[in-house]
Design a protein around this nucleic acid. Structure first.
Lengths: 333, 333
DNA sequence: CAATTTTATGCTAACGATTGCACAACAAAT
DNA sequence: ATTTGTTGTGCAATCGTTAGCATAAAATTG
C-alpha cells in the first residue's frame, strides 16, 4: 500500500480511504487511485485490517461426519450464505469424533467473529472455548449446550407427524431405528414418534439403533426382515434418512417389498434419499432457512453487544415419496 | 500480550519468546510466563503474527459439488491432514458452478499460503488469481491448468483396467457413461476404457453421459434397459461411482439383474458405493495418499522458493465388489 | 581482580492497514 | 480585509506480534 501511495503521489491514508469509498476523498483522486490499484493488482491485507478493526471476517465452522450427506448439504449452504454476507469460513473440523485441542485453539488464534457448530454430537471442546472467550456461537441441528444459541428443526414434531400419518394410513405395528443415543436430534425424533404411537393406543414400537449410519440402519433392517412375518412391523421410522436408506436396502435385499409389505420413512430430506431407488417419504429440514437464521443469530451477536442465547426451531417440510403407504388424502393430491 | 507482560514483570518480547520456546529464555521465567498465560487464558493473535512473519498458516480450499460424496470424503482428508501440519483451511467455495470474484479475492486478502482446488470443473478464476499472485496452487483430481501442480489418480489406467477385466470375464458388448465432457477426469477414464475395448477387437462401446450426477447415470441406465435384449450391452462403466450408482438403480428398477444380466463398474471408491445395495466393483482413488502428496507439493512451494510445477499421478486400487462378473482368478481369491 | 565471554532480557522498529486530529486551500459571509 | 465554514489530505498513533541490536548481569578465564 505504501508503494501504491507513493506511485499515486498521495499518503497511505488517502489510498485507504479511497479504496473504501470514503466520501471525504474527492472523486477524481479516488478514481485515479482505484485505477492504479487495479493496474498493479493491489489487494488490501485483511489480516492487517483486522488488527486495527477488531473483526476478522472469519466464521469458524465445525462440521459433523460428512459421510452423512446431510452435513455436506449444510456445508454448502454455509459457504454460500456466509459469502453473501462477506464472511469467510475457517474450516476447523469435519468428521466424527471430538475436535482436537490444537484445532479448537485456532478459533481463538484467528480471532473468528463467530462460530458455527453443525454436528449432532457434542463438540464440547469448541463450545467451551467459545463460551470462555465470548465468541458468539450458534449450533445448527442440535440443542444448545451450556453456552450458545441454536437453530434446529422441530424434531419432535417431525417424528410425531410421521407417526400420525403412518397410523392414519392403517399401520399398526410400528418400529423406530434411532441414531446416537446421546444426540438430542435422535432422541427427540424418536420420542415424538413413540409418543404418538402410544397416544393412538397401539403396541409399543420396536426399537433399534445406536449409531447414525447406513450400516446401523441396514443391520436393523436385517433383523426386522428375519422376524416371522406376523411379528414384523408394518412401518419403520429411521430417525435420519441415512438410517432409513439402510433399512430400506436391507428389507429389499431380503425380498420384502417397500412400501408393499413395510413402509419406511426417514427425516432430513437429503438429496440422496429423494432420488431412486429410495424416493423416501421424509420430513425435510429447511436447510436454507436454518442457515439463514443461524447467520442472523451470529450477526446479531458479532458487534459486541451482549444478547441472551436464543433457540430457534423451524418446522420441517413433509416430502411425499414412495417409500411408505400414506393416507389417501395425501397421495391423491 | 502487553498486559500479560506487565503482570509477569517482563517485556513483551520476552513473553513472545517464552511462549514459542525460544532457547534464550531461562526455564524458570518461561515456566512462570507459560503458567500465567494459561491462567489468564491468553492466546496469541495469529493475524498479528502473520503480519510480521509473512505466512498466514491458511490454505484456501475450493471444493467441487458436494452432492458427489467423493468431494466430501476429500474434504475430510484435507481438514485432517492440514491440521496435522498446523495449517488451517479457508473454505472459499463448495458446490457446482464457478467461484465468484469476491470469493476468489478472499484468497489474496487473507494471504493464504497456498491453495487447494479439488474440483474436476475448471475453476479458472481461482487458478488465475493464484497464478497472478504467485500463490502456490495444487489441484486434486484434475490435470493442471496453465499454472499450478496437480495430483490425481491414473484415470486412464483405471478405465483401462476395468475394460480389461470385463473383457477377460467374457463381456462383449460394452458401454460407458461419461461425466462432464470438459473435465479431464471424465475424458481420461472413458478414453482408457474405450481404448482397451478397441484393442480387444470388440465393437465400439455405446456412449452416454454428459453430467457427473446420479440422475444422468439413472437416465442412461433407463435407456440401456429399454433397448431390446440382444442390443443391450452386457457391461457398463460409469466414469464415477455416482454415475454407476445411477445406472445400477435404473437397471434394477427395470428388473434387470446386476450383475446377472449386466455388469456395472464405477471409479472413485466412495463409501456410499461400496455398501449395500451397490457393493460396487470400482477403482478407488487413494484419497489419503493423494492428499498427502498434494500437501507435500504445497509445502515445498510455500517457503518462497520457486519450483517448477509438478504433476503427480497415483495408481488407484481395484475394489472387488459384487456389481460385475469378473474373471474367476480374481473372484476366487 | 580485571578482562572477556556467555547468557538472559529489554528496547525499538518493523509488518500493513485504519482513524482521529491537525492543517492547508479555497469559498462564502461579515 | 478579516473571520467563518467547507472540503480534501497528510501526519502520527494504534492494533498485537516478531526480530535485530544493545545491554546488564553472571560466569568464565588469565
Amino acid at each position: 500500500m505504501a508503494s501504491l501511495a507513493r506511485a499515486a503521489g498521495v499518503a497511505a491514508s488517502t489510498v485507504s480511504r479511497a479504496l473504501r469509498n470514503d466520501p471525504r476523498i474527492s472523486p477524481d483522486v479516488r478514481d485515479r487511485i482505484v485505477a492504479l490499484a487495479q493496474e498493479v493488482g493491489y489487494t488490501p491485507n485483511i489480516l492487517a485490517r483486522s488488527l486495527v478493526g477488531g473483526s476478522s471476517g472469519l466464521i469458524g465452522l465445525v462440521l459433523g461426519p460428512v459421510d452423512n450427506p446431510f452435513y455436506a448439504e449444510l456445508m454448502q449452504r454455509a459457504v454460500t450464505q456466509a459469502a453473501a454476507r462477506g464472511w469467510r469460513l475457517l474450516l476447523v473440523h469435519a468428521g466424527p469424533g471430538p475436535i482436537e485441542q490444537a484445532t479448537a485453539d485456532a478459533l481463538l488464534q484467528y480471532r473468528v467473529d463467530g462460530c458455527l457448530i453443525t454436528s449432532a454430537e457434542l463438540s464440547s471442546r469448541a463450545a467451551r472455548i467459545c463460551r470462555d472467550n465470548q465468541v458468539p456461537l450458534v449450533m445448527v441441528n442440535r440443542v444448545a449446550w451450556e453456552h450458545g444459541s441454536a437453530v434446529s428443526c422441530d424434531n419432535d414434531a417431525a417424528g410425531a407427524l410421521l407417526a400420525d400419518l403412518l397410523i392414519e394410513a392403517g399401520h399398526r405395528r410400528l418400529a423406530v431405528v434411532s441414531g446416537n443415543p446421546t444426540t438430542s436430534t435422535s432422541i427427540e425424533r424418536a420420542d415424538g414418534f413413540i409418543r404418538r404411537v402410544r397416544a393412538a393406543g397401539l403396541p409399543e414400537p420396536l426399537r433399534f439403533g445406536g449409531v447414525n449410519s447406513h450400516a446401523k440402519g441396514f443391520e436393523a433392517g436385517q433383523v426386522i426382515a428375519a422376524l416371522p412375518a406376523p411379528d414384523r412391523p408394518d412401518a419403520v421410522l429411521g430417525v435420519s434418512d441415512l438410517i432409513a436408506m439402510g433399512i430400506m436396502d436391507a428389507l429389499r435385499e431380503a425380498g420384502i417389498a417397500v412400501p408393499g409389505e413395510i413402509s419406511v420413512v426417514g427425516i432430513d430430506g437429503v438429496a440422496a434419499a429423494r432420488r431412486p431407488p429410495y424416493r423416501m417419504t421424509t420430513v425435510a429440514q429447511p436447510l436454507e432457512d436454518m442457515m439463514e437464521r443461524a447467520l442472523d443469530l451470529l450477526n446479531a451477536r458479532m458487534n459486541g453487544v451482549h444478547r441472551a442465547d436464543e433457540v430457534v426451531t423451524l418446522r420441517g417440510d413433509l416430502v411425499i415419496g414412495q417409500s411408505a403407504r400414506l393416507p389417501a388424502r395425501l397421495t391423491a393430491g
